[in-house]
Design a protein around this nucleic acid. Structure first.
Lengths: 200, 200
DNA sequence: GGCTTGACTACACGATCGTGTAGTAGTTTG
DNA sequence: CAAACTACTACACGATCGTGTAGTCAAGCC
């Protein structure tokens, strides 16, 4: 699965470079010339293969989505909530995830669709695991957002912990901290009901 | 507190416009000319008052941080976990929060410092409320990230719910869903211990 | 062999970017 | 009153952006 860069076609190298740079610097922050240089080709070739920057972005969206689902399928021996989380550390998936989140924040339809599919999956998961929140859809959406949050703020969380959470040790630590969030009830049902009254 | 735009000095209008546009489009996505037009001044005046785009960004960082702390102080009659959340919907705080999150993702030191202060606050809160996770710092960092997550993915969450969560009704809904996440234990302590063994 | 086709490069274009410079109008200060 | 200062605009600069055009080169097909 992991091939040296020489084995990839120029088109694939351009796409991989685009996903990496778009993910790191954002869409506006990565120029076609940067991407071409990263891929070791001329900037004209980027245009030749993808037509325009926007079309390149859409191609990256499609590829990232497809690839994430594919990698996810390979890892679904664990069917619990944490089963999807190793994705974030997967050496191939890491830049993909980074790109997708960036793409979401820039309003990509494909990336947003991936989020919605994640919400669907979490929703089904709550059903099959006998979790019955009052607002199942809302609950699933909140969980989906939470799942991405540690990834989005990885730099900030790493700084807070004094430990890089993209390393196995660091990711293990924040992963277990997240487990505790889902284990320790912060509020009693009574407290929640009281708040609900106040807000009305 | 809410003054018409005419009452603000040009400097303040530039700063407010910069925070709004930087927050919406990112730092690279908002040009000085855009900001100047939004503030109703010439682009040269932006440079006159702030020196450079980077200096403008730092000024926005400082102002947004100071203002958020100030607004937060005004609202701290509620001292519970949700006490800080109404910030996200506060009409003045909304663009500030949006800007700060964007600034974080672009690697701003000031914005990251604000995150770290938030982690400190949550950490103290767990102590005073008798919550004792095995990794208190990690737990606080996870909670801080979670608190921002719904805000970061507000577009995606809104789409998942079919309801704009920046409106009072929608925010109430996702807020209560988050409450349920903190109320329903997803995992038993036993399950967590089993996972911990597997990961080692 | 000639001819098409696709991968690929070099280069030039207009637009837009952040920045620099020069100058005007109004107020303050000595 | 004159000098100085501040807020502000107009305009030009070099760099960089996405894009467009022309052409080279090798492989496959007739």
């Amino acid at each position: 699965m992991e091939r040296p860069a020489d084995d990839l076609t120029a088109r694939a190298r351009i796409r991989d470079a685009a996903i990496r740079l778009f993910g790191e610097r954002g869409i506006e922050g990565a120029s076609i010339r940067d991407i071409a240089a990263e891929a070791g080709v001329s900037s004209g070739l980027v245009r030749h293969h993808f037509g325009s920057k926007e079309a390149l972005r859409e191609a990256c969206d499609r590829y990232a989505k497809e690839r994430m689902l594919q990698i996810g399928a390979e890892l679904t021996q664990d069917h619990d909530l944490t089963g999807l989380d190793p994705l974030a550390l997967h050496p191939v998936a890491f830049p993909l995830q980074l790109y997708i989140v960036r793409s979401m924040m820039d309003g990509s339809e494909t990336a947003t669709a991936l989020f919605l599919e994640g919400v669907d999956a979490v929703e089904e998961w709550t059903t099959s695991f006998g979790i019955n929140p009052k607002d199942r859809r809302g609950y699933a959406a909140a969980l989906a957002a939470i799942k991405l949050s540690v990834f989005v703020f990885r730099d900030q969380v790493s700084k807070a912990l004094g430990e890089d959470i993209t390393t196995p040790a660091g990711y293990n630590r924040i992963g277990q901290a997240l487990m505790e969030v889902f284990t320790i009830p912060l509020l009693t049902q009574e407290q929640v009901d009281n708040m609900r009254k106040q807000e009305k």
